[in-house]
Design a protein around this nucleic acid. Structure first.
Ligand code: FES
Ligand code: FES
Lengths: 138, 138
DNA sequence: AGGATTCCCGACTGTTTTAGTCAAGTATGA
DNA sequence: TCATACTTGACTAAAACAGTCGGGAATCCT
């Protein structure tokens, strides 16, 4: 149960973008340097973030990325999902009508793990990029 | 962010032990078969669980494991910690006075991840083995 | 026009972690 | 004395992770 770098870096970079990029495009190299992240790796992440509509890109000299949505409307949970961070607690696919084992009965621990997943998702959905920028975390 | 088998199997096995083992020792083979878990793997886990005082063992014929504490007093969070399931959300060691990068300032996302960790721990500490056996989960 | 800058995209790879297996030993009860 | 069951450490195949690399395309500055 530990957070991978994909999700972590994506959030760090977007916070940086919301914090330092006031409307104007920020180059990836700048973000990468400030947050001490590998540039080539960030490129992968921003590719997905652009395709999902979180950021917009400007190419060429003085180009870079800008936020495509208001920081207050971007929830952390959305970012993690967009980037492909699993956030998976149960062993069974909750979509399917099958438990851990073949039986269609759910195992005794199923409710526990789904509960945990719900807790995590609720927390991460309650917090927006703007909350992070303004340090509005409990 | 996904749960490994170590923690999952440990909880499953202990729930089984609390549910089916009424005072009398349960053999590992029995638990393993009922929960569809690899026996040799469970042995590793129960070694730790015994050393940490969660279960007691009886050797020889008709031997097995019994719960060493009341099911109502065993919190899920304790089990995961005992078994070595990381449950790590921040990148920095929260013990040390060092952030993600060299600076002793904490990064903007630090509060977020610690908050997430607290949420998870609180939830898992709120629930006991007895709660699972009696299906008292929301 | 030409070069510098920056985004775009897919393929590839070394390392680490996971999820176990295997083998040999010890204690106990029938 | 034999079968059962716990005890313990070493070992390993496979998957996930974390990141690199290389080439390409758009855009702006001089
Ligand atoms: S985790 Fe869903 S049935 Fe066991
Ligand atoms: S996670 Fe602790 S400082 Fe960034």
């Amino acid at each position: 149960m530990k957070l991978g770098t994909k999700g972590r870096y994506a959030v760090m970079a977007l916070v940086d973008l919301a914090y330092y990029g006031q409307g104007k495009p920020l180059a990836l190299t700048e973000i990468a340097e400030r947050q001490a992240l590998p540039i080539s790796y960030l490129e992968q992440l921003f590719l997905k973030l652009r395709q999902k509509g979180f950021v917009a890109s400007t190419r060429g000299h003085l180009g870079g990325y800008t936020l495509a949505r208001e920081p207050g409307t971007i929830r952390i949970a959305e970012i993690l999902e967009a980037i492909g961070e699993p956030l998976k607690t149960t062993r069974c696919e909750n979509t399917s009508e099958m438990g851990c084992l073949g039986t269609k009965e759910k195992c005794l621990t199923h409710a526990l793990w789904t509960g945990l997943g719900v807790q995590m998702h609720q927390y991460l959905h309650r917090i927006s990029l703007a909350d992070l920028c303004e340090r509005r975390i409990t």
